[in-house]
């Protein structure tokens, strides 16, 4: 599971953003800074939501922004961002509005690394206590501590 180890520079705690597009950009920022993805990849993640609808929630409050590797992935990577305030997605055909506060931005280079990432993320979201603790954090340090603790425990 070393593939999905989050280092400090890929963990973010943010107060709030203006809208969901901004949230996607912010959640991708660490990967962009590290040169792992291109601006085009970020646009592709936003376009996917525009085209397919805002259905990137993998668990209550948890969003998984991602696009295809060929959209602009240089190196595999994963970044986690906690937003203190709800990020609202546009309503779906059922008129319900989804909100999320935990964004896991995913950039895979091939299907094998992609599957490994998904397995790792599955182990996060099946641990409801871990997710709830992350949602309750009030600082960058606290967020990093909870994630480090999770790795020590597992």
């Amino acid at each position: 599971m070393s593939d999905v180890k989050l280092d400090k520079s890929s963990i973010q705690w943010k107060q709030e953003v203006t809208d969901w597009r901004e949230a996607i950009k912010v959640s991708a920022e660490p990967l962009l800074q590290q040169g792992k993805i291109t601006e085009n990849y970020i646009q592709a993640m936003i376009d996917n939501i525009d085209n397919l609808g805002p259905y990137i929630l993998i668990a209550p409050n948890v969003a998984l922004p991602h696009a295809r590797p060929e959209a602009g992935v240089n190196e595999r990577g994963i970044a986690l961002t906690v937003f203190k305030k709800d990020v609202e997605f546009p309503p779906g055909t059922d008129n319900k509005t989804d909100t999320a506060r935990l964004f896991i931005c995913l950039a895979a280079t091939d299907s094998e690394t992609h599957l490994n990432f998904l397995k790792g993320i599955s182990s996060w979201i099946e641990d409801e206590e871990f997710i709830n603790r992350l949602l309750e954090t009030d600082s960058q340090e606290e967020t990093e501590d909870i994630i480090n603790e999770f790795y020590t425990k597992n």
């Binding site: 996917n48 397919l52 609808g53 259905y55 990137i56 929630l57 993998i58 998984l64 991602h66 295809r68 995913l106 299907s111 992609h114 599957l115 998904l118």
Partner: peptide
């Protein structure tokens, strides 16, 4: 939506 995220 895309067949390679949450569905997998």
């Amino acid at each position: 939506g895309m067949g390679f995220g949450s569905s997998l």
